[in-house]
Amino acid sequence: MRKRPEFESERERVQAGEIRFAIVGCGHIAGKHLEAIQQAEGAALAALCDPNLTRVSALAESWNVPAYAGMAEMLDREPDIDAVCICTPSGLHAELAIAAARAGKHLVIEKPLALCAEEAESIGEAAAAAGVKATVVHPNRYRPAIRHLKEALDRKMFGKLSHVNATVRWNRSQAYYDQAAWRGTVAMDGGVLMNQGIHSLDLLLWLFGPVAEVRSWVDTRIRNMEAEDTAIAALKFANGTLGVVEACTTVYEHNLEESLAVFGENGYVLIGGRTANWIKAWNCVKMPDEEIGRIMAEVEADPYGVPGHERIIADMVEAIRTGREPAVTLEEGARAVRLAWDIVRNGR
């Protein structure tokens, strides 16, 4: 790890961009946060926290930082922590985020922000009252293909849109759900929409605006779990655009595809692959062939770009340093939660 520079004052440290992060929850997703903190300029790892002492101690030793079983003790004993990454099961996000905010710590919260609208709103209220910055991890916004699509939509290149389509046709085996008692539960994990499909819902809201009407069907068709493993929804956006969402974890026996399709009066775009990183089709009468060719060549050469988690950590460093809001706001995270909840509630 990089050696931490020394500063004469806390203000000097923050202005210089030395923002110290702690990670709460050291399961699989914590690895992406560790890598992002290591790579992002101005970020440093200060501590790790997980009730599984064997796991957190081994990880902390490899990263040369202290380990804690509880967040309260960590924040009490490590006062130089600036921001906390919440990487626990989703059902714990609200409790931990609110406690960290009240302790004066900025927040990076894994998706979904919470498992219901009320908890999401409580996190927002706590962050606002404490005056801390907070963001939600929606890294798919930073995929090169998605960034190019966003730019084209902002330029109105496709004109009036007729409809859009988002699919998540993935596999999560029964063994995946059986590996931990909280997986697939309504209280701690949610189903395919809150867990896997939440990124697609965030993209739909970010790209096309708020949803005015939802009609849906959700069910637990194949997996032995409490929440849904399959969801189908028809959406009507506030601007009149129609949308379809299809999400499942029941595809046999590997992930098949994740896609986003956009259809307008001037053309269409299909972004797909096993993950929605590749441009499968781009046809737009308002864009020169040379521009379309350049976009497709850039994405083909580097479909992943800078990892989204790294972009989110770097954005939080800059937000804390300058006082601006993070690029992905709590309200945007809450909108995705509300849409997922509306689909489930209307579809049962």
Rank of each mutant, 00 (worst) to 15 (best):
E12V: 06
A58P: 02
A72G: 04
Q38N: 12
P5K: 00
H163R: 14
Q38T: 08
V285H: 07
S173A: 11
V56G: 09
E258A: 14
G70Y: 11
V192Q: 03
A120H: 03
E61N: 12
S173M: 07
A114I: 01
P144T: 09
K32D: 15
V168H: 15
A94F: 00
L161Q: 08
L205M: 04
E332N: 11
G243F: 06
I23S: 08
P89E: 10
I146L: 08
R77M: 12
D315C: 10
R345L: 10
S57A: 14
S216R: 08
A261T: 15
G240M: 04
Y252W: 07
G27I: 02
E121M: 01
A99K: 00
S216H: 10
A120Y: 01
N165R: 15
I123C: 01
R4A: 15
T250W: 00
G240I: 05
A327P: 01
R274S: 10
V56Q: 06
G267Y: 04
A180P: 07
R321L: 13
V24P: 00
P89V: 12
M194R: 04
V192I: 08
P326C: 12
R172A: 12
T241K: 09
T249W: 01
D80A: 14
G31P: 08
R215Y: 09
A134S: 08
L193E: 07
H163V: 05
V251H: 06
G197R: 01
